Computed example of a mutant assay.
Amino acid sequence: MNSRNRKHLVVLLLLLVCTCRTDAFFRTFKDWYDKLTPSNEECNEDWISFDGRGVGKGLEADLGRNLFGQHIASDVILNAMTGFMNNDNPKKSLVLSFHGRSGTGKSLASQLIVKNIFKKGMDSRFVHFFNSIINFPHASQVETYKSQLQHWIRGNVTNCAHSVFIFDEMDKMHPGIIDGIKPFMDYHYKLDGVSYQKAIFLFLSNGGGEIIRESTLVSWKAGKKREELKLEDLETALSSFAFDYYGESNVVDFFIPFLPLEHQHIVQCIMVGMVAMGLQPDHNKACKMADNIVNYIPDDERRISIPGCKKVASRLRHFKQSNKEVPQPAG
């Protein structure tokens, strides 16, 4: 396709976005462009890793280097992914539900999973990202969203059985939409001639964040080390909480808690961010920034971070652009 035709295609796509408001919420511009233009990415081993051992090895290293303070999530994700990828004939698609407050690493974990499967990572045309607020904003159009989403999943899994679907802000998704995609995640050999058993569904939710935070605080006050918390300590509460979203269906393989972060984890996030932005990593400055930009609870102990690592990237960009020193913490 020459440059002139590409320009015409872009204009056509913009017109479609303007005239088909529902589709504008449903399909991103990237998805339209990738669907209608040729791509050298194929659904084969040149572009997708089918080696469960290789995926597990890379994922384990990435989780260890980048996902701080989440020993439960790291262990469950690694075991779930390696088990699924090593199974040549899974009985159902893999469905993971991530729960925790904003800034604890849910999005990062999903990106690391994708990175270790697809050569193009999140830019792969076989990875599909949805934000419930942006893509499904109007309750009055639930049936339309539901129909379009079913069509989208069916078409893309037909195109590549190893497709990944990520749903952010899942706790804000209308139950009717969730009901519409449950069949793709359940124990069905085929639906309308299509098998979904090798697809992966990742749900990211702030729901359950308070339960996880309170459980972490109670454990800490009881004198237990953070690392002593286990999935079993939180999974029952989370699964009960998630019943409101998924109902009685057993489509979710694991409800994975993301614990609230502590001061040491914020410092780690800042150090990694410094390297990523080309700044000289400085532990003392990172500690000062962690004190300055993050609120902690309880007030007298400053134990748990409220926003997690959410503010780190924007603050580092600000300091880099303004060439300022990291400010001293108040008091």
Rank of each mutant, 00 (worst) to 15 (best):
I304S: 04
Y196G: 04
P281L: 08
W220P: 00
E228V: 12
I266M: 09
V294I: 15
K288A: 11
E210A: 15
G176W: 11
V267E: 08
P257Q: 07
E248F: 07
K288L: 13
V312E: 06
W220Q: 03
I166D: 00
Q264M: 11
F258K: 07
K172M: 14
K311R: 12
V252I: 15
T236S: 12
N250Q: 09
G273W: 08
M173V: 13
P260W: 05
I177H: 01
K182T: 15
A222K: 13
E235S: 08
F255C: 04
V275N: 01
K221I: 10
M185S: 01
T216D: 03
G308D: 04
E248K: 08
E262K: 12
L279V: 03
Q268T: 09
E235Q: 10
C287N: 08
R302F: 12
H265F: 13
A290T: 06
E301F: 10
P260S: 11
M289C: 13
F258N: 07
Q264W: 04
S219A: 15
L217F: 10
G176Q: 08
E210Y: 14
C287D: 10
L229N: 00
G193W: 06
I212M: 05
D244P: 00
D233W: 03
K310E: 09
F243D: 04
P307I: 07
C269T: 12
M173F: 05
D192E: 15
L238I: 04
E214A: 11
S305I: 11
P298W: 15
D179A: 14
F241L: 02
S305M: 07
